[in-house]
Design a protein around this nucleic acid. Structure first.
Lengths: 329, 329
DNA sequence: CCTGATCGTGACAACGTTGTCCATCTCTTG
DNA sequence: CAAGAGATGGACAACGTTGTCACGATCAGG
């Protein structure tokens, strides 16, 4: 900038004014400065600018895994809202590791992002209190924050699951299995709760060997499913607690002679092309991201000292067939 | 930092030394400074630090759409490599819009990212020359840069397509269709070339109504496919130029009485569960991202004035069945 | 006890911007 | 023609760090 000023024969501040299109500069001077800028290939250093203005026009997004299509859609929605507000987006994957989540969040804070959108991996976010007090707007999404009171945007996991399980019950099932993710994960717990509630609402018992919680690796899902299907009171239907479970379940069930009804949480591409087409309870990942980002920018634009708000998005049953298979007696 | 220094009764620079764990500070002083830091909740401002040190420890990633699983996997790989090098990641989606690509790239450059990984949307990247000259390491991935000479990591699109088409030919097909993306997109052109080459290698003609290039919306794919299947010399097999085409083709073909063989470019989840299981030519999106990021950091770590390098990753045929359907005469 | 090396520390400038404030220059108006 | 107003431009400090250098204290060796 100094060089540009020298070459154009003007003061430093005048160059700044031209670059920022501030009023009060003769068209003639503007032209001179502009040509100096072009000649020198000058580009304003936004880092320095932002250091001075104390707004970084950037937000940080921490999620579990960028490679998961669910989070891909969520990220994209956050990005679009950020762009509309002129902000750039830092992203990072926590890989479901609380330490890594914290590292990422603190790294973003050290960069002085204006705000954070976090899919929490850990269950204790008190480490964020000083940052939030320092003015970093923070919105949690998909899962609530642990041990602190903060804005959060969620899917109605319990309600969605209730709907899905009720769908199976409506089609005659009484022995329904549930396979979910690790109990520490909030959404997994909520979905299990929804399953229990739906069963209770219908006056149905839940045997201990009808539900399994844990890492959703194919092996574990396969084993859990085998147990449910081979006990003294085998299940005739399964509710799959997330799409990895659903996919494995489809694989296992398609190899069995006796049909087993299936409803899964989370939609996935091609679900309608499988045989039978898979009924799901669909979340709206883009909606989660959009709402979270909008909430963030609302905070940033002034609504400072309001109470933390909690938004809950509905989950929607998409009946495609696999949930309507009658129980095999 | 000034406040910390005052509270600890030391100089500014000493605080800096403690924060950066530089040697040459008495343990006693360290303790005093540390307790002042804790008391004040001080966090170093990395923006300022990076302004001073002239390294931002961040890279920008511009791709087509974060919500596309292909790019999700690519991003994740870039992120992992970046993390290993202590860098943070800015991401942005160009939505296949050259203007937006340029805006994003220039915004990242204004933030003085150390490097850029770009999936180009436009076909003219001369606007990047000043930035590259200014020292921003740049690697293009998935598609080459337009009109400038730069590092690039690609999939062997033509070769992969040749393999896929040859697979169909090996199973007896002589009239093979090809539906690809818009001709302006480099990968689409390369895949068309591979198709032509494979046909020529086998001494087979290519009728004009056997291939179609354009936006890969379901309607267009449906129409193109209808044309190919209803002409005077209908195709008995189809090579689908990307996974959106493949998915639509599966939908259309599954509704037809006469089986049509299918091979698609790009793998997708559940391809093996469809009926028939879909044979694909699989790319390695994570490999693309990893290689691009590694190349980037190799440049950053010194290999400055080398020639631009070009890495080409193989595409791999995964035979699952749909490519082995014999021609219906 | 002196010398010179070593260690710990802090003052200062710099990174590249922008906000504040003041100086000048050119009009317009009485 | 004087004076005030408005336009235009620039000097300077500040944002929060780190690199450079110089200073004083401590310590080993002669």
């Amino acid at each position: 900038m100094k060089d540009v000023a020298a070459r154009a024969g003007v003061g430093l501040k005048t160059v700044s004014r031209v670059v920022n299109e501030e009023p009060g500069v003769t068209p003639d001077t503007v032209a001179r400065v502009q040509s100096a800028i072009d000649a020198l290939g000058f580009r304003r250093n936004d880092s320095a600018r932002l250091l001075r203005t104390r707004r970084t026009a950037s937000v940080g997004l921490v999620l579990e895994d960028l490679a998961d299509p669910f989070y891909g859609a969520l990220s994209r929605a956050v990005e679009d809202v950020a762009r509309a507000h002129g902000a750039l987006l830092f992203t990072g994957s926590s890989a479901e590791n609380p330490r890594r989540e914290q590292e990422l969040v603190l790294a973003f804070c050290a960069r002085r992002v204006d705000g954070l959108v976090v899919v929490p991996a850990g269950d204790d976010h008190r480490y964020l209190t000083p940052e939030i007090d320092a003015g970093v707007a923070t919105v949690f999404v998909d899962r609530p924050a642990g041990r602190i009171d903060a804005d959060v945007v969620l899917t109605d996991n319990a309600g969605g699951t209730r709907t899905g399980v009720a769908h199976l019950i409506a089609h005659g099932h009484r022995r329904i299995g549930f396979i979910g993710d690790q109990p520490g994960i909030h959404t997994a717990g909520e979905r299990l709760r929804g399953y229990r509630e739906a069963m209770a609402d219908a006056g149905l018992p839940v045997r201990p060997d009808w539900y399994a919680m844990g890492p959703t690796t194919p092996e574990r899902v396969r084993a859990a499913l085998a147990t449910m299907l081979s006990g003294p009171e085998p299940v005739t239907a399964l509710f799959a607690g997330n799409n990895r479970v659903t996919v494995t379940a489809v694989r296992v069930l398609s190899g069995r002679p006796q049909p087993v009804a299936l409803v899964g949480f989370d939609d996935f591409e091609l679900a309608d092309l499988l045989d039978p087409p898979v009924t799901v309870v669909a979340q709206d990942p883009a909606g989660l991201g959009r709402n979270a980002a909008q909430l963030l920018f609302r905070r940033l634009d002034g609504a400072t000292s309001e109470e933390p708000s909690r938004v809950e998005l509905p989950a929607r049953l998409i009946a495609r067939g696999s949930g309507e298979i009658p129980p095999a007696y």
